[in-house]
């Protein structure tokens, strides 16, 4: 089964509820614990896992994920190390890798994509690779059977949404608010952005950026999201807890309950 099919199967097995897609910073606080956290996510009810590759200059990320990335790098994280987490965890749920474009270029696009495919990665998200810059990466993904997952934003014009929606493989990563990743207050209105994106794609619409409470996750699902991505809230839990794996597992469980 190729990556796109595997992701599609994960979404359809959720039937009428939204898929829970927690984000994990690979190698944070170290490689072994990040693998334990990933297993905790699956135990808690994750349907797919978004696995972050730490980067020195993450433009789309707020302070929690920035700091986790820096700490992971300081602890010796490498792409190959993060891919060992992908290898293990992709046996349980589909893994979508999230990394910045310079990581892809550093290994050369084709080899990068074939390496992540070999590690069992089903999809690739590159937050600083808009459609205009994406053709080479999307092409390599297509030939390696990895779903290339583009991002849509509240600021995207209808014309861009049409192009992004048509290009989406696996799912369409929909950015809930203009801004960087990070926890936000409870007053978010997700309906409009989901409806706009939905009109332009047949792929599942997954909402991320700022969703940090079970209530917000449930609101996102009620607003029509096919998948809900939880990032900074979980990474903060991993940073603050003495036992990150079980703390994250029980937090994911709370999100999972909110989506049932």
């Amino acid at each position: 089964m190729n990556g796109a099919d595997r992701i599609a199967a994960a979404f359809s097995s959720c039937e009428r509820r939204a898929a829970l897609m927690p984000y994990l910073m690979g190698g944070f606080p170290d490689l072994a614990i990040s693998l334990a956290i990933a297993n905790g996510y699956v135990d808690g009810g994750a349907d797919l896992i978004e696995l972050g590759v730490p980067f020195s200059d993450p433009l789309a990320d707020g302070p929690v994920i920035q700091n986790a990335g820096s700490a992971a790098l300081a602890a010796g994280a490498t792409l190959d190390g993060v891919l060992t987490v992908a290898s293990e965890i992709s046996a349980r749920v589909p893994v979508v890798l999230m990394c910045y474009s310079n990581a892809v270029l550093a290994r050369e696009t084709e080899r990068f994509v074939s390496d992540i495919a070999a590690a069992g990665v089903s999809g690739l998200i590159v937050p600083d690779l808009p459609l205009e810059e994406a053709p080479a990466t999307a092409e390599s993904c297509a030939s390696a059977g990895v779903a290339f997952v583009p991002l849509a934003a509240p600021t995207s014009t209808d014309e861009r949404l049409a192009q992004i929606g048509a290009a989406a493989q696996g799912f369409l990563y929909t950015v809930a608010v203009a801004g960087t990743t990070g926890e936000r207050g409870d007053d978010s209105d997700y309906g409009e952005v989901i409806a706009r994106v939905r009109a332009h794609t047949s792929a599942p619409v997954a909402l991320g950026f700022g969703i940090s409470t079970p209530q917000q996750a449930s609101d996102a699902a009620d607003a029509g999201a096919d998948g809900v991505i939880i990032g900074s809230r979980l990474v903060r839990e991993a940073a603050q807890s003495d036992d990150p794996a079980s703390a994250c597992a029980s937090l994911v469980e709370q999100f999972a309950q909110a989506l049932r």
């Binding site: 690779l129 810059e133 934003a153 995207s156 861009r160 801004g179």
Partner: peptide, 8 residues
């Protein structure tokens, strides 16, 4: 090479 949010 920027987030989609900035492209418009």
């Amino acid at each position: 090479y920027v987030p989609e949010t900035l492209m418009p």
